[in-house]
Design a binder for these strands. Structure first.
Length: 859
RNA sequence: GGGCGGUUAGCUCAGUGGUAGAGCACCGGCUUUACACGCCGGCUGUCACAGGUUCGAGCCCUGUACCGCCCACCA
């Protein structure tokens, strides 16, 4: 038996065992394991340019508990880690850090090196150079993240990491895209698209969020031609008046029925438009007549499509400013071209907000604005990372089909095991609410480019229908730098030459392939067969509509399969005010500080108390409890292992009862963990452990200190219990359990076999029901004695003289009397049985003196 | 407007139709040879509200209120 320290402590355990685990490759994935023994986890790649917060610690701990459990169950745990360095946060960080800006039209410069300090004027670099800078910068982030994860005790195989902008991920993103293109599941289309004017890119439905914004209803007069009357509409976006292509009212609205298909004239610009009928128009909103503009919101798109309102009169440019328009030109009719032009020219170049103020001024001048704008607050759609409301701009974009696959996607969601089960509804809700295919192209430069070139006609026009695709073996490529087969570099963007697709993929188009990336899709067939479909996707509930949905979609389209069998959805960490912890609220605690303050095991303990999918309050008090548990484990283990006597057959009823109780615990915990109910497993293990310390040890410690068969029974059963409890605790508090394990066992506890009911019962032959009754009775009687001792304030040193125990205790008494009496300083007591409990203590040696008041220092 | 959770002790939360629970906090006591980073004990309830089912409801059903989240609408 290795040495048990005199003063066991938690300090330094993290660094000690991190190093040892790495040296011993404790968490290395076994490539030779057959698929049936593999447990594969699709770990979320954290965004490296962000910072890890306590919510990450929380949810990644949950996953690690499962990973450690499965490993102890004998599974080869496939537990890689990714870094998400693809996307806007990293793009901005690279720009600021190095003082560069990307221009994809530039050729790659292999000799480029950034200056030591970012220059005032950004250096323009090619996309491959920009990606290189990203990789250089994120290496440092990744090191810090990895250190934190190791310190937290994540049992990741650190030999398997990937980056979402890394070459393998780019290759797989492009390969998967080309496969979808070949199948017709990816397509390109020119259509009205949700657009962020600051980032100047299309965004997807999944990236929207509503924000409450101040606005105002503007009541505007529209004359009806040759009717001598007018319609009134209310709009929050009067600046779109020049883009008006129709008015619309509900078909049953009696107020407007007479005027359907009449020609209305827009104010200021004198554009003839029709009043149309459409059921989506709500008679109760505003005046019941809405202005259809190209495009103010998604309803406008619907009306434009369904009412076939040609043409598009787009006035917003990609940067959000109003573009120049020649009134009187095709598509821009006006009954008064001169004044329309004169008025519109005052708007050109203005942002939507400024144009609104200007147009209100103009409407006031002509008297077409009725009354003052009426302030309201309303929800406006934003890109979740954006600062200004989304616009809708017609542009050429890549899409992946989703709507056509809705039934199949719902079936996948139904087949997936959700933890907790009710999270399935969020997925179904989202799939049922999809209103368009998934737009995956972004007009950014940093990301995975589309591996596509287009032929350029001899007249210099790019033919987007004549695509030039690379061979799969060439991937990844960058069409802004690489040249399609059969062309020369100097034919780029030349008549008769080629042009590269300028766009990059949405980050989710890569993240959705995380199982493909880690499992070696089209790269490592043996690994792919061994690990895909995976077993577990852990993630937070806010990205069900993005990461989870898109991963299911890609796997459905590419593999006709679910990507994993289980989805474990974690909750959020809330601050004590029940608000989600976030950086903007300034209530984030740095994870490393937490781990150092409380110890990793203690923080993990708190995290494991938060059930799957349950938003959980940040609670340093629970971490203190976890720390006390770890210390208690050290001390109790020291006591159990400190016994010098020999172990022998487990014959004593109390020992047999304890092990029977433990065997039931093992069975329950295993069942709980199989169902991802790690919270219940921890709670039950903890309850047993405290009972073991407080009651069982107190009962057996004197017997164990003697010799003979009863002492040997106590020693043997305590050792079994310790071994079992350490293994039950190991997934939750890996450091302290490993430390104790090393005192007396060989190998890592994290590679030890998960305990089984049969193993614990081995020393007994069978569950011992009488023993179970004995330990329960022993605890009951001890509780009675302790209660009286405490109420009467009798110190433990004062012996019990006589005991009258409940008659119900009589049958078990012979089995437990020695242990119970010894554990309560009552070995000399006379014991009788009657209906009521009674106790007498030995007379006090000295009469208690009344306490003398001590002079108090002024406080 | 639709959907999903939640509401149990001062706090954080378990609770599987059968006596209302744990930890923390608080109060009182105890140096008991593993642990004072400890131990023992005590106090603490309109289980959100209303109705229903049942011999029996915190749990099942219906409705309501409030909190949180998701989605839709947002002229």
């Amino acid at each position: 038996m290795a040495s048990v320290p005199d003063k066991p402590a938690l300090e330094g355990l993290e660094n000690k065992w991190i190093a040892r685990w790495e040296d011993d490759a404790v968490y290395r994935f076994d490539r030779s394991a057959p698929r049936e023994q593999v447990y594969a986890i699709d770990t979320p790649p954290p965004t490296v340019s962000g910072s890890l917060h306590v919510g990450h610690v929380f949810s990644y701990t949950h996953t690690d508990v499962i990973a450690r459990y499965q490993r102890m169950r004998g599974r080869a745990v496939f537990y890689p880690m990714g870094w998400d360095d693809n996307g806007l946060p990293t793009e901005r960080r690279v720009q600021n850090f190095f003082g560069v800006r990307c221009d994809p039209s530039l050729p790659y410069d292999p000799s480029f090196a950034p200056p030591d300090a970012p220059p005032k004027t950004p250096i323009v670099v090619s996309r491959p150079n920009f990606v290189e800078l990203c990789e250089r910068l994120t290496v440092e982030d990744e090191k810090a993240f990895e250190h934190l994860w190791r310190y937290l005790g994540l049992s990741v195989d650190w030999g398997m990491t990937y980056a979402t902008i890394g070459k393998p991920a780019r290759r797989i993103s492009q390969l998967a895209f080309l496969r979808l293109l070949a199948k017709g599941e990816a397509y390109q289309n020119e259509a009205p698209t949700l657009w962020d004017v600051d980032f100047r890119t299309a965004v997807a439905q999944a990236e929207l969020e509503d924000r409450e914004m101040p606005g105002a209803y503007h009541r505007i007069r529209f004359p009806i031609r040759r009717a001598g009357t007018h319609l009134e509409i209310e709009t929050t976006r009067p600046e779109l008046l020049p883009a008006c292509v129709a008015l619309v009212a509900h078909p049953d609205d009696e107020r407007y029925k007479p005027f359907f298909e009449h020609i209305i004239e827009t104010p200021l610009f004198k554009v003839p438009v029709y009043l149309k009928a459409h059921p989506l128009a709500d008679p109760t909103k505003g005046t019941g007549v809405a202005m259809v503009c190209t495009f103010g919101d998604v309803t406008d798109v619907t009306w434009w499509r369904e009412l076939q309102l040609q043409p598009v009169r787009a006035i917003l440019q990609p940067n959000g400013a109003l573009k120049p328009v020649t009134w009187g030109a095709p598509g821009w009719p006006s009954d008064d071209v001169t004044s329309a032009q004169q008025r519109y020219d005052q708007l050109v170049g203005l942002s939507a907000v400024k144009a609104r103020a200007k147009i209100v001024e103009l409407l006031r001048e002509t008297g077409d604005l009725l009354g003052d704008p009426r302030p309201i607050t309303h929800n406006v759609k934003f890109f979740e990372k954006g600062d200004r409301p989304l616009e809708i701009i017609t542009s050429r974009q890549w899409f992946i089909r989703t709507i056509a696959h809705r039934p199949g996607l719902l079936a996948r969601g139904a087949a997936l095991q959700w933890v907790p089960a009710h999270m399935r509804a969020r997925y179904e809700n989202w799939v049922n609410g999809l209103n368009g295919d998934w737009c995956i192209s972004r007009q950014r430069f940093f990301g995975v480019p589309f591996p596509v070139w287009y032929r350029v006609y001899d007249d210099g026009v790019v033919d987007y229908n004549d695509r030039l695709l690379p061979d799969e073996s060439q991937l990844p490529i960058d069409p802004s730098t690489d040249v399609p087969a059969g062309f020369r570099a100097d034919q780029r963007d030349q008549p008769g030459g080629f042009s590269g697709d300028p766009d990059v993929m949405d980050t989710w188009a890569t993240s959705s392939l995380s199982p493909f990336i880690v499992c070696g899709w089209e790269t490592d067939q043996a690994l792919w067969t061994q690990t895909f479909p995976m077993h577990l996707r852990p993630q937070a509930h806010d990205i069900i509509r993005t990461w989870l949905f898109s991963t299911v979609l890609r796997s459905h389209l590419e593999c006709d399969s679910l990507p994993w069998a289980n989805a474990a959805i974690s909750g959020w960490v809330l601050d004590p005010d029940r608000k989600k912890m976030s950086k903007s609220k300034g209530n984030v605690v740095t994870p490393m500080g937490l781990l150092e303050q409380h110890g990793s095991d203690a923080v993990r303990y708190w995290a494991a108390k938060g059930g799957p999918g349950v938003d959980t309050a940040f609670d340093a008090g629970q971490m203190q409890v976890g720390r006390r548990l770890a210390i208690k484990l050290l001390n109790a283990s020291k006591f159990v292992l400190g016994k010098t006597g020999p172990a022998g057959p487990v014959t004593h009823p109390i020992d047999r009862g304890m092990l029977t109780k433990l065997a039931a615990l093992v069975k329950d915990c295993s069942a709980s963990l199989d169902e991802y109910d790690y919270t219940a497993a921890l709670r039950d293990t903890e309850a047993f452990f405290w009972w073991f310390c407080d009651d069982h040890i107190e009962h057996v410690k004197r017997r164990r200190a003697g010799d003979g068969p009863d002492a040997a029974s106590a020693t043997a059963s305590c050792l079994t219990a310790l071994s079992t409890m350490l293994r039950l605790f190991a997934p939750f508090v890996p450091f302290v359990t490993e430390e104790i394990w090393a005192w007396w066992q060989t190998g890592s506890v994290h590679r030890a076999a998960w305990p089984t009911e049969a193993e614990v019962l081995d020393a007994l032959g069978a569950p011992d029901a009488a023993g179970l009754g004995a330990v329960a009775r022993a605890s009951d009687v001890t509780a009675l004695i302790r209660r009286e001792r405490s109420l009467r304030k009798v110190p433990f040193g004062v012996a019990v003289q006589s005991l009258r125990l409940p008659a119900a205790a009589q049958p078990e008494w012979p089995a437990i009397s020695a242990d119970v009496l010894a554990g309560n300083n009552a070995t000399q007591a006379s014991v009788t049985f009657a209906d009521e409990f009674a106790i007498e203590f030995a007379p006090a040696q000295a009469p208690p003196s009344s306490p003398v008041p001590q002079p108090q220092a002024p406080s």
